[in-house]
């Protein structure tokens, strides 16, 4: 498989770069981010870095705050303490009154795909894709439609341009959701369990789309329960538990010989190893 070879090459390249910290700048930096839901602390002074050519896979037990991490980065959840830098510029911070400040211009460089597609059912595929570019980013309608056609074409869905989401399969809906996020040309894509709601035979088609994106060197942060896919796509993996980063390393190391006991326990459970 061409894609896979390409990705393995890239991975090797990245591994070399990261050892010497060459070439790649940090894209996302969490600095002491704390996030509480009532009494539960889902992020406890968390530090986390991601480089601009990384594909970071986040794994961890349920309730460990994997999705919250992505939601915070998308500006969907306020934080209690700490700050996040994006592209070496302040992005999310907490002011003196405890309110979360989010830089909207930076937020528009982050795209997100959700578990439940979240296509707007009253708009056609084209309508879903052109809504934000036209209404928010002032793109001309015909230009937006051309771009939508191009993205859908890449995903093999140009014939569904005028279909409504209700007529699409789960896999097709999720492909449109990915294309809709790409329309805004984000620098970072967040994938929050995007295959969890899909029937098994549709998982592969979405994973292929994501591997294609990886080939185009899109920076991604991925929360997934599929450890095999995680290993395949990631250039970097992080295991979080109890609101902290327990282990962050190359996926080859994480999945084969994790250092931390908690990582081992977790991987043994999910990979059904003895």
């Amino acid at each position: 498989m061409n894609t896979e070879e390409n990705i393995n090459e890239q991975k090797a390249e990245n591994a070399i770069k990261h050892q010497g910290f060459l070439g790649s700048k940090p894209l996302v930096e969490f600095k002491g981010v704390t996030k509480r839901f009532g009494d539960t602390c889902v992020m406890d002074e968390m530090d986390l870095q991601m480089r601009e050519d990384d594909r970071l896979v986040i794994i961890g037990p349920s309730g460990s705050g994997k999705s919250t991490l992505l939601r915070v980065l998308m500006g969907l959840e306020p934080i209690d303490k700490g700050e996040i830098h994006f592209d070496s510029k302040p992005y999310v911070s907490v002011d003196s009154k405890g309110r979360t400040q989010t830089d909207l211009a930076t937020r528009s460089k982050v795209g997100m795909v959700f578990q439940h597609y979240t296509l707007f059912p009253h708009l056609s595929v084209l309508g879903n894709m052109t809504l934000s570019p036209v209404k928010v980013h002032g793109m001309g309608r015909s230009e937006a439609e051309d771009r939508a056609r191009e993205y859908l074409g890449r995903l093999g869905m140009e014939d569904k341009l005028n279909s409504y989401p209700g007529k699409l399969s789960g896999g097709q809906k999720q492909r449109v959701a990915i294309a809709r996020a790409l329309m805004l040309e984000p620098k970072l894509m967040l994938f929050d369990e995007v295959t969890s709601a899909l029937d098994p035979e549709m998982v592969a088609e979405i994973e292929k789309v994501m591997l294609d994106l990886a080939k185009q060197k899109m920076a991604m942060m991925i929360v997934t329960h599929d450890m095999y896919f995680a290993k395949k796509i990631a250039t970097e993996s992080v295991f979080i538990a109890g609101g902290k980063v327990v282990e962050k390393c190359d996926p080859e190391i994480m999945f084969n010989e994790p250092k931390e006991e908690r990582t081992k326990d977790f991987l043994n459970k999910v990979l059904h190893l003895k």
């Binding site: 969907l76 928010v136 809709r180």
Partner: peptide, 8 residues
């Protein structure tokens, strides 16, 4: 949430 992610 999707609206926020799309910048609407």
């Amino acid at each position: 949430d999707a609206c926020v992610a799309l910048g609407l």
